[in-house]
Amino acid sequence: MTTLLIVDDSPIARQILRKCLPKDADFTVLEACDGRDAIEKFQLFRPAITFMDMTMPVMDGFEAIAEIRRIDPKAVIIAATANIQPKARKRIADLGALMLLPKPVNPGAVRDALSRARIATRDDTQG
């Protein structure tokens, strides 16, 4: 069983992402509504994969990714954002996020992201 953490300030965005998860797989899904909440949940539950929205109140996704990667340098984080300007893209990559998932999300893109994330986690445990 894989634990996922979905971070987004919008309840509907979290709901949409949940609905895009493959139905045949077994996930435990946790939710957080801003960066600070995400860090707390991450420390408590150590999810295998974190989906991170970038623009949020209290603490945004950029700060949260940096902090989570400090807590666990191997944390697998997928940045979900509509802002795919090269500058934002580069900043997200530099912070150590695995990849960028463009919004609005759809089941196909989420499935692809999850399989890339699984390969990343496997590589990490083996390496």
Binding site: S10, I12, T55, A82, Q85, K103
Partner: peptide
Amino acid sequence: TEKDLLQELMNIGFGQAAADLAQVIGLS
């Protein structure tokens, strides 16, 4: 719920608009 979804879709729409604008006018 509708309000939340509307806000989310507007965030997405304007986010995409910003990204594509940077391409079209060559300026961030």
